[in-house]
Amino acid sequence: MRQFSLGWSLIRLYTILVYVFMFTPIVVVIVLSFNPKQFGIFPMEGASLRWFIKLAQNDSIIGAFQNSLILGSLTAIISTSIGILAAMAFIRFEFPGKNTLNTLLLSPIMIPEVVLGVALLLFLRWLQQPKSFALLLIGHVVLTLPYVLLIVQARLVGIRKEYEEAAKSLGANAFQTFREITFPLLLPAILAGALFSFTISFDDITATLFWATAQNQTVPVKIFSMLRNSISPEINALGAVMIVLTVTTPLLAGYLSRKFSKFKP
């Protein structure tokens, strides 16, 4: 009868209130993006697509979107590739200093992004290189690598070594074994890692603000510079597009992977 007790009702009510707290601001951004007014926030005066049209006509915003998409995709590809290799080393081999190295690779999670931002920029300055797209890319790879590693490692632990050994005993070489056995079994984690690193890269602002230039803006940096004046329906519209994009992608990917996944070890 627990589900009907007073205590449980209070717990449920509390949880709902926390949800309201967390989601009201996000929902309001989406609602306000249809606000036709130029100034102020509420009350809304009808609904229009005016600001979305204005966004689509703004070259610098389109450019920022292109940058963000390319950056996120490249980050995901690089991070996931080197993350898989590292995860294989940690889970499938024994070697001296393993735990220390694992902690080192995970350490960017615990180092404040501000410090990462300053450090990489300082290093670049010492090398006398200008800020560039490459800086954003390598920076985002460092930011996302630990997450990929954690996700892939967790899955790899669950894949029994015997499958790989069986393949090898049947004559497959290391690459064939990986391609035919490990990779398919690992695929959900690889996709999750890639998606995670894409969204982290796509959404990141704290470190990116140190690395971006006027030519290499990402969407969050663009939003930041637009906020200097004040909040506007245009910013809300841009925010709404970002929210829809970064929220539906993982949901869709999760749905598709569940629908099509044939490998359930």
Binding site: V28, D203, F224, L227
Partner: peptide, 16 residues
């Protein structure tokens, strides 16, 4: 909210 950019989550409070 993990998937919503930090900058959007922060600025959304101005609307509220």
């Amino acid at each position: 909210p993990f998937w919503v950019s930090f900058i959007i989550r922060t600025m959304s409070w101005i609307n509220i």
